[in-house]
Design a binder for these strands. Structure first.
Length: 332
DNA sequence: CATCAGGGCCCTG
DNA sequence: CAGGGCCCTGAT
């Protein structure tokens, strides 16, 4: 591992999420595979970020409560950040992190739901969010495809080591600092050949990564323009990317573009888990996909948010004690 | 040892 | 629209 780029300049501000706000359940999603661009511990999340070409080290710290939330945001950078840069960085963080999402109606509609009600009580203030740019999320979606967790972790790490930038920031004394990888600019991987990428043991995904990267370098995809388009226009634009299909688009419409109603895809392993969660069914004899989708319809415009709550609830439970039937389905 | 199925997607017929 | 192939890896 080469020496990290040391980020010496520091800027601190505060964010005020709309209450209720559960810091840990929002900033950490235990179902996500671990990657070396972030670290979480209760009340704190470190996260690297590439914004307008500038590698940043970000730190979120809990400073309030669920009902009176406050988050301290500290940003480390190579050089002093200008006022306009800070302002639109904050705008971007507000968008990605979705701190202003209003959960009141969702809770009002479903607090009495026999299945969702208790989960809402347990995780009041949990919001869905996304730390990455659309480009970065597409890369993550590609390394998720057709691979178990450990393989995805290895592929992501190989990509970071090959094309990312190691950053060092938030030293607690002169020697210790967080060392985390930051994503690369699309043009960096655009210069690499498919063979170079294949050497990272990412297999046929090398072609998808090349093609998706090209689309960004050539300006065929504009994340900010897409944010203003309809869900169906977004879906169409994403599906047009080589290597991006319905499973990846489903993740992206919820996580990146914040559509709370988009529960339209169930892969085989997820089908088994939903069957157990919603029907108490043996995972080896799962309920059909169509029937599962039908039961989610009762959550209406909050279909995906409801599934997110129930899914995260399960994975938080697993973090504290092994869930026997689940361990077999999540292969490491 | 060999074979196989995956936290999909593309391409073909 | 169904089905084969694809990189690699751990499981059998």
């Amino acid at each position: 591992m080469s020496d990290p780029v040391r980020l010496e300049c520091r800027w601190t501000t505060e964010l005020s999420p709309k209450p209720p706000f559960n810091f840990d359940a929002t900033l950490h999603k235990p179902d996500h595979f671990p990657s070396t661009d972030n670290v979480w511990e209760p009340g704190v999340r470190w996260q690297t970020m590439l914004w307008q070409g500038e590698p940043l080290g970000v730190k979120f710290e809990e400073r309030g409560t669920v009902d009176e939330p406050l988050v301290a945001l500290t940003v480390w950078s190579r050089k002093e950040l200008s006022q306009p840069f800070r302002e639109n960085l904050l705008t971007e963080i507000e968008y990605r992190y979705n701190f202003q999402l209003d959960l009141a109606e969702f809770y009002r509609l479903f607090k009495a739901d026999p299945q969702l009600g208790p989960v809402i009580t347990r995780w009041r203030g949990m919001k869905p969010l996304n730390h990455n740019s659309l480009y970065e999320y597409l890369i993550i979606a590609i390394v998720l495809q057709n691979a178990a967790i450990r393989r995805s972790v290895n592929m992501m790490q190989a990509l970071f080591e090959g094309y990312g930038t190691l950053l060092g920031y938030d030293a607690v004394d002169c020697t210790q600092s967080k060392e985390l990888y930051c994503f690369w600019e699309p043009r960096i991987i655009d210069r690499a050949t498919e063979e170079e990428l294949r050497a990272l043991k990412i297999g046929y995904r090398a072609k998808s990564i090349k093609r998706v990267t090209e689309a960004f370098v050539w300006g065929e995809v504009d994340e900010f323009e897409l944010r203003g388009k309809s869900k169906e226009e977004q879906r169409e634009a994403l599906l047009a990317l080589y290597g991006i299909g319905p499973a990846s688009v489903w993740y992206i419409l919820f996580d990146v573009f914040h559509h709370l109603d988009t529960m339209d895809h169930i892969s085989p392993w997820e089908q088994k888990i939903y069957s157990k969660l919603f029907f108490g069914r043996d995972p080896d004899d799962p309920v059909g996909v169509d029937e599962l989708l039908k039961t989610f319809e009762r959550f209406g415009q909050y279909e995906m948010l409801a599934v997110h709550y129930i899914w995260e609830d399960l994975f938080w439970r697993r973090k504290h004690e092994p869930v026997a039937w689940l361990e077999k389905l999540i292969r490491l």
